[in-house]
Simulated scan of single mutants.
Amino acid sequence: MMGRYDTREVAMALSEYEQKMLEQLEAQLRDEDPKLAESFQPARQVSLKRLVLGVFIIVAGLGVLVAAVAFSLSWLGIIGFVVMLGGAMYTFSGPIGSISANSGSTQPSGDPKASFMSRQEEMWNRRREQDGR
């Protein structure tokens, strides 16, 4: 079975010694190579509300830009471009949630250790299923 697992299941699957060793390995990975540890973060997506509002701002900026070209007002064109840039920045910056495997909705990204543990458990279960053929 693929999907997101409860961290309590992970705790039951590993002995206390194994849990401590895994936590030490995670801490060591974060210390030695933070970029690699960050790459293990779950997939992210922009919230729908931010996306819709950002696209609206971009379209408004584009309208100002077109009006500036129509009336030959370069200062208005610069303002339109800045509004478009602001809309793009608003859309793709700010709070981002992780994609939940069960619901597909956005949730605030929580403890990176929990998501790392979840992926490790998924890999462990896949290996066990392949060996048990």
Rank of each mutant, 00 (worst) to 15 (best):
L36V: 05
A37Y: 10
I58D: 05
I57T: 05
D31L: 14
K20S: 08
V59S: 04
M21K: 15
E16K: 08
Q19S: 01
K35Q: 15
E32T: 11
E18K: 05
M21Q: 13
S47A: 13
A27K: 13
S47T: 10
M21T: 11
I58N: 07
G54C: 06
S15G: 10
G54V: 01
K35Y: 10
R44T: 15
Q19G: 03
M21R: 14
Y17C: 00
E38Y: 03
P42Y: 02
L62C: 10
K20N: 11
E23T: 06
M12I: 09
Q24Y: 06
R50K: 14
L25A: 15
K20D: 13
G54H: 00
L14W: 15
V55N: 02
A13S: 07
F56R: 03
V52D: 00
Q28C: 06
R50C: 01
S39L: 12
V59T: 06
M21V: 14
E23K: 09
R44E: 14
E23Q: 12
A13W: 01
A37K: 01
K49Q: 11
S39I: 05
L22C: 03
M12Q: 15
A60T: 13
Q41E: 15
Q24A: 08
L53A: 14
E26H: 08
V52N: 03
K49S: 10
K49F: 11
K49M: 10
D31C: 04
E16F: 06
R30V: 09
K49A: 13
Q41V: 02
G61K: 03
Q45T: 11
Q19Y: 02
S15R: 05
K20R: 13
E18T: 06
E23F: 09
Q24L: 06
L29C: 07
L51C: 02
L51Y: 09
G54R: 03
G61Q: 02
S47G: 12
P42E: 08
V46W: 01
M12T: 11
A11M: 14
A27W: 06
L22H: 04
E23L: 11
V55T: 05
Q19I: 05
P42C: 10
A43K: 12
S39C: 07
L14H: 06
L48E: 13
L25N: 13
Y17I: 06
F40T: 07
Q24R: 12
A37R: 01
P42Q: 09
R44H: 09
L36P: 02
M21P: 00
R44Y: 03
L53N: 03
V46Q: 10
L36R: 09
D31T: 08
L62K: 03
V46R: 10
R50L: 02
S39R: 11
G61C: 08
G54N: 04
K20L: 08
A27Y: 07
L25I: 10
Q45K: 15
L29F: 05
G54W: 00
L22E: 04
D31H: 12
I57H: 02
P34D: 07
G61M: 03
Q41A: 15
L53C: 05
L25W: 08
D31N: 12
I58V: 15
A60R: 01
Q45G: 15
A60Y: 06
L29Y: 01
V46L: 08
D33F: 06
V52A: 10
L22D: 02
P42K: 08
I58T: 11
R44M: 14
A11I: 07
L48K: 13
M12R: 15
Q19A: 04
P34S: 02
D31V: 04
Q28W: 11
R44P: 00
E38S: 12
E16A: 13
M12S: 13
A11D: 14
L48R: 13
S47I: 01
